[in-house]
Design a protein around this nucleic acid. Structure first.
Length: 832
DNA sequence: AGCACGCCGACT
DNA sequence: GTCGGCGTGCTC
């Protein structure tokens, strides 16, 4: 009794801002340690795997402490560095540790129980039939085949939202069994392997066998091939060989192999294999030699790393940044350090993957949302160095999207954040709303690693940090092979309209340049920013537009399904043929997307092969890369695309890039709109004339005198930076002030309005906080919830976490007020 | 977030 | 009387 009890503080995958303490039963005492997963019951029934944060002997007072059920890992799954990183992230981004846990581990490593319901056959054998309600009978009928169902299935069968009352009643009668079953998370992948039976192992026995098989030459061939592949040696256990490989090598029919198995010469067994090894890349270590200015940049980076943790590489498009990265990566790998190479989702294309595989072969691991969860678990385990298959090679270089900052590096030396300015590094939903670039710098700090930010168009924040000495700065102003930057032509849409020269959405200047390019056998890219270009329906008589039932947005018309869809909540509606305002039947489509551009363009250039690249046209797994390769191989003349075409793609034969409407992005109500427009236009323009000759960029705009347009035309990044920095300073935006956006949401507009006013008023008590709002967001209602925003500009950059605490506490106080019960508060730190 | 409990209106 | 909808409170 007097024996000391041990307890563990656990991180549970729930959005609560605290850890939970469980007792460690005696039989688990030796296995319980920081970073492993513990299986626990949380609440009345749910079972979760939780991460052990620490082990101690302090029994929490006044709490009925539960026992840990089991420990899943023999070695920690989460490193100490990761745990510190999680803590930092939860605090900095005002999220909870449980939410960070959910974001950080692939779901295959997070167990969660599900309630499953089973038919209790023995009850019916022993008892008389009790009375059942209609719904209860339905449930029993569905369960009768002996197949257990989960609650969602039963909800669907009964067509109700919550089937629990019926299940409970059935359970009390004894007719069903309720169980908490844990879904199999990660499953090993197995493959059939062929192995020589032990009874034939040994030279003598083998020779007898070979003699016997002489009458079946095909079978003999297969046996010899096996012995070859397995490097057969006497006195060594015969090595299993993949059946796939054996069959492929010999080009035989399954029958030959089967007869050898039937004779007991071969045995078949299932072996765990890696999901990654299918790509059999040999490491060619193809490092292209750097030219002088690349080498110079690399030297500068290395020198700066001696004194700075972070360096910004500002290299114009086509300056060959990738080759600089590769040399840098190589030097870290040679020191046996791990390297993380971050890319925005859209830039993680086959082109860049291929280049890195050429250089580093099988050491490259990819972490991407297109991979299955099982593959992600394998990558995670591989980096952790556990559970390795013999055909797997430890990844030294990880090429990944923003979530790869959560991988369990143990020996991280370098993080590269490519296209550093990309806004997709910021996660918005779900929480944690983290900026992967900024978090990567923090991770590097915690790991003793360096960070290299790379881009042709740095974010104002990063460039400011570099200028002010917080980061090192390295600039490359020459293009690879000395090709000059494209010539930028501004096409004035306003003037063309006045002269009635516009054809569809094209200025005469653009059409003329396309014509010339096509005639010379060159390719063209047309860029259409997607935002605001969705098709919608409009009544031609009265201007009525079909809107979403639950959100304050117009419904988008989807041609391929012939449906109206809300892009915010997913609500869909059949196409209306009658105006619900004036009953006119003259309903027309409005707005235009890439689809429309593609169509119209075909009219002007009937001979040209035109394709578009956007979310819709690249839906399938390979659709995207097949369009890209078609374009690369000049099976397409004109490619019309959205953001997707701007990143990580190099096309040699593109001489003209057209930006169809520059104003769309300039007029976006956001303090970063100008910066983003510059970045986007510069990046798109950078696709022109990457090899051979100077390219052309045409920007169609109605405001040709706009400063940003002029700066893009002159490719004057520094000028853009200076004007933007001035504005940021004047209006107290980052990097001078920190922003925190608070979103309040509630079903009742009046309650929401009042809550927002009260919250804002309470926040204004702190003079360091500049409070903007509350204001309605652009979309005032989504999914039947009203929204209101409060923006905080933090004047002082130090003590920031104290202010966050105050903001959060004030929010908690607000929700305690009976009037405001049910109001939800969403914090977004450093919003984008 | 789940999940249970409890109160209230709307059906057979 | 069921049934089904929320609003509310708790989770070691």
């Amino acid at each position: 009794m007097s024996q000391t009890e041990f307890y563990a503080d656990l991180i549970l995958p729930v959005p609560l801002d605290q850890h939970f303490t469980y007792r460690i039963p005696d039989y688990l005492k030796n296995e319980c340690s920081k970073g492993k997963r513990a299986v626990v019951q949380f609440g009345k029934k749910k079972i979760y795997s939780a991460i052990i944060k620490n082990v101690h002997q302090n029994c929490p007072p006044d709490i009925n402490v539960k026992d840990i059920i089991d420990i899943l890992d023999s070695t920690p799954l989460v490193t100490d560095t990761q745990l510190s990183f999680w803590d930092w992230m939860a605090e900095y981004y005002m999220s909870t540790i449980g939410e960070v846990y959910k974001a950080a581990l692939p779901s295959g490593l997070r167990l969660e129980s599900n309630t499953s319901v089973e038919y209790n056959a023995s009850f019916f054998e022993e008892n008389e039939l009790p009375d059942f309600s209609q719904k209860e009978s339905l449930v029993l009928d569905a369960l009768k085949p002996g197949k257990p169902l989960n609650l969602e299935d039963i909800n669907r069968i009964l067509m109700v939202k919550n089937c629990m009352p019926f299940i409970k009643s059935l359970f009390e009668k004894g007719t069903i069994k309720i169980e908490e079953s844990i879904e199999k998370g990660f499953q090993q992948k197995t493959e059939k392997y062929i192995c020589l039976s032990l009874q034939y192992a040994g030279n003598e026995k083998l020779n007898v066998l070979i003699e016997k098989l002489k009458r079946a030459p095909k079978q003999l061939d297969l046996l010899t091939s096996y012995l070859d592949l397995s490097n057969y040696e006497e006195n060594v256990l015969p090595k299993p060989i993949s059946q796939k490989l054996l069959v492929k090598k010999n080009q035989i029919q399954a029958g030959i192999l089967n007869s050898l198995i039937k004779k007991g010469i071969f045995e078949i067994r299932n072996e765990n294999v890696s999901r990654h090894s299918s790509t059999q890349h040999t490491e060619t270590n193809l490092l292209k030699p750097l030219n002088d200015f690349q080498q110079n940049a690399l030297d500068q980076i290395n020198t700066l790393f001696n004194e700075k943790g972070t360096v910004l590489l500002h290299g114009i498009t086509s300056s060959g940044k990738t080759e600089i990265y590769i040399q840098l990566i190589d030097s870290y790998l040679k020191e046996n350090k791990q390297v993380l190479y971050l890319l925005p989702e859209i830039a993680l294309t086959t082109q860049i993957i291929e280049r890195l595989r050429q250089a580093f072969g099988t050491k490259v691991g990819i972490y991407h949302s297109k991979f299955s969860d099982a593959e992600r678990v394998e990558t995670y385990n591989n980096i952790l160095g556990i559970d390795m298959k013999d055909n797997a090679i430890p990844f030294q270089l990880i090429l990944g999207v923003r979530s790869s900052i959560f991988l369990p590096f143990k020996n991280l030396g370098l993080i590269i954040v490519d296209e550093e300015h990309e806004s997709s590094y910021k996660q918005y939903n779900p929480s944690p709303r983290y900026q992967a670039r900024d978090s990567a710098i923090m991770l590097a700090n915690l790991s003793g690693a360096k960070t290299l930010l790379g881009t042709a168009t740095p974010s104002v924040e990063s460039f400011y940090n570099a200028k002010s000495g917080k980061f090192g700065l390295v600039s490359v102003n020459q293009r690879f092979m000395g090709i000059s930057l494209p010539e930028v032509i501004i096409a004035d849409v306003k003037e063309a309209r006045r002269k009635k020269q516009m054809k569809s959405h094209f200025t005469p200047a653009l059409l003329y340049q396309i014509e010339i390019a096509l005639r010379q056998g060159e390719q063209v890219i047309l860029f259409q920013n997607r935002r605001g270009f969705a098709l919608y329906l409009e009544c031609f008589e009265c201007g009525w537009i079909p809107k979403c039932k639950y959100c304050d947005v117009s419904l988008t018309y989807h041609r391929y399904t012939n449906q109206l869809v809300c892009h915010y909540c997913g609500y869909s509606h059949n196409v209306v043929d009658k105006c619900s305002n004036c009953h006119s039947t003259d309903i027309r489509t409005r707005g235009f997307g890439t689809e429309k551009i593609e169509e119209d363009l075909q009219i002007f250039f009937p001979e040209a092969k035109i394709k578009r690249l956007d979310l819709d046209s690249s839906r399938g797994k390979n659709a995207h890369s097949s369009i890209i390769s078609d374009f690369e191989n000049h099976r397409i003349d004109i490619l019309v695309g959205t953001q997707m075409i701007t990143k990580g793609l190099d096309f040699d034969n593109v001489s003209l890039v057209g930006i169809l409407d520059a104003n769309q992005m300039l007029n976006f109500p956001d303090f970063r709109a100008y910066e983003r427009s510059f970045q986007l236009m510069a990046q798109v323009g950078g696709r022109a004339g990457r090899k051979i000759k100077q390219g052309k960029v045409i920007i169609q705009t109605i405001s040709s005198e706009n400063l940003i347009i002029q700066q893009v035309a002159k490719n004057d990044y520094e000028n853009m930076f200076n004007t933007q920095l001035n504005e940021r300073k004047q209006f107290r935006y980052p990097p001078f002030n920190r922003l925190i956006n608070i979103s309040l949401k509630h079903k009742n507009k009046a309650i929401l309005d009042k809550a927002a006013i009260v919250y804002a008023k309470a926040l204004r008590l702190l003079p360091e906080l500049e409070i903007i709002g509350p204001e309605y967001p652009v979309i005032g209602r989504i999914y039947d919830f009203y929204y209101k925003n409060i923006l905080i500009k933090l004047k002082k950059v130090n003590r920031i976490n104290d202010f966050k605490k105050f903001i959060r506490e004030t929010g908690k106080q607000l929700l305690k007020n009976d009037e405001f019960k049910g109001v939800q508060i969403i914090y977004d730190v450093d919003p984008y």
